[in-house]
């Protein structure tokens, strides 16, 4: 465990909790893509099946349970509790266009052809693109609430910190996981355009809105 990995995990935690609190406090999930959140729930579910088979550390297990719980709570709030505020009309990205190819790829390119390993690989690939419906929704509506942009920034920062963690681990531990690294690069690149807007607009006190 190095400092980049830890801050990456914490950044991920901040993102998840920020989104949950935003929805809870405003009693609304307007501007949030339910499809992205369902995919994140699917990501955590398929990745953390090893909670039952492979104990790593109390930290690891606790974080997994928190991520899973928060992720399901978010989906519950969007599709059940605050369903009326869900912006379904703007959440039009076709999730099957991501899930099906990613599932196929997980079958073809994995470390080991076993059910758990294929599901883990699927979760890594799916996570890398799961934010697309959310980014697509922002492009479609042309704006995002500031708190939503903080959520996205923390979520993007998490994977960027993981990239530094992987460089660190390669040099100091000789460890690398090519599947995670390639997918992590893709995931981080998807946020670049957003990072630019966040830094040039949101951090200067402006609302994130795109030119019409």
């Amino acid at each position: 465990m190095n400092v980049f990995r830890l801050t990456g995990d914490l950044s991920h935690l901040v993102a998840i909790i920020l989104l949950l609190l935003k929805i809870w406090k405003t009693r609304s999930c307007a501007g949030i893509s339910g499809k992205s959140q369902v995919m994140f729930a699917l990501v955590f579910t398929t990745r953390y099946l090893d909670l039952f088979t492979n104990f790593i550390s109390p930290y690891n297990s606790v974080m997994k349970v928190i991520y899973l719980g928060c992720s399901y709570a978010t989906v519950y709030m969007i599709y059940m509790k605050f369903k009326a505020s869900y912006d379904g009309n703007h959440d039009t990205f076709r999730a099957e266009f991501l899930i099906i190819p990613v599932g196929g790829l997980a079958f073809l390119v994995n470390h080991e052809f076993t059910p758990l390993e294929i599901l883990w690989t699927f979760s890594i690939y799916l996570e890398s693109v799961a934010i697309l419906p959310q980014l697509f929704m922002i492009t479609k509506t042309g704006e995002a609430e500031t708190i939503t942009t903080h959520y996205l920034f923390a979520l993007g920062l998490y994977r960027a910190l993981y990239l530094i963690n992987w460089i660190w681990r390669y040099y100091f531990e000789g460890f690398f996981d090519l599947i995670a690294i390639v997918a992590g690069c893709v995931q981080t690149i998807l946020y670049c355009d957003f990072f630019y807007l966040y830094i040039t607009k949101v951090l200067h006190g402006k609302k994130l809105s795109l030119p019409a």
Partner: peptide, 10 residues
């Protein structure tokens, strides 16, 4: 050599 199926990251 990396250990397979020992995914210690989150």
């Amino acid at each position: 050599k990396q250990l397979l199926q020992n995914h210690d990251e989150l």
